[in-house]
Simulated assay, not measured.
Amino acid sequence: MRTHLYLLLLAAGASATPLQSNLAELQTWLQEIYQSVDMLNLRIETPVSSDDESCIKTLFEGTELLKNNPKMKRFSIFFQSFDKLRPSLTANLAREGKCDTERKNVKRFIEKLRTFLRKLSRGAKE
């Protein structure tokens, strides 16, 4: 499974410079979101593993849930930028696999999303 994820990250890194700057910007936005979600009482399906390529879809579904929350409207730029990544991340998925998830609070979901973006950043540099 890790090999598939690395191949996916490598494919996403084909245009590394724009991708790298986008990922850095997304990380900055996620830090702001993370600091402001204390009062948000949501439980989101969160991948157990950050290495499973089948969980990419779960991460996008979780961000959709956040995007549709009225308290998150001020972060619309983050959600627009993250949605732009969707085609490059999901285009190379050979098949839809099972993603083990747990319902976690928003902060835990964002931590997983940040880990995922950090891994993408490393893949884009190589």
Rank of each mutant, 00 (worst) to 15 (best):
T101Y: 14
L59G: 03
E64C: 02
T46E: 07
L85V: 04
I56G: 00
S88G: 13
R86M: 03
E61F: 12
N68W: 03
Q35R: 05
S49V: 07
P70M: 04
P70C: 00
F60D: 02
R74N: 04
R86I: 01
T63W: 13
D100P: 02
M39W: 08
F82K: 09
G62D: 03
K71L: 10
P47M: 09
K84G: 01
I77S: 01
F75W: 12
T90W: 04
D100T: 12
D52R: 07
K67L: 01
N92Y: 08
V37F: 11
D83A: 03
L85K: 08
K73S: 05
K73Y: 15
F78H: 09
R43I: 00
T90H: 11
D51S: 02
T58W: 06
T101M: 12
K67S: 07
I44V: 05
T63F: 13
N69V: 01
T58D: 08
G62W: 14
S76K: 15
L65E: 13
Q35L: 06
R103Q: 02
K73V: 00
E96W: 04
L42K: 07
N69Y: 05
E96L: 10
S76T: 07
K73P: 00
R86D: 00
E45Y: 14
L42S: 10
F82W: 09
N92G: 07
I77P: 02
L59D: 06
V48L: 14
C99M: 01
R95N: 00
I56Y: 10
S76L: 06
C55R: 09
I56F: 04
S88A: 02
L89F: 01
T58S: 08
F82T: 04
T90A: 13
F79C: 06
L66H: 10
K104C: 11
I44C: 05
R74D: 03
A94S: 11
F78W: 05
N68V: 00
L66I: 15
F78Y: 15
T63M: 09
F75K: 06
D52K: 14
T101A: 08
T63G: 04
S50L: 04
E53C: 02
V48Q: 08
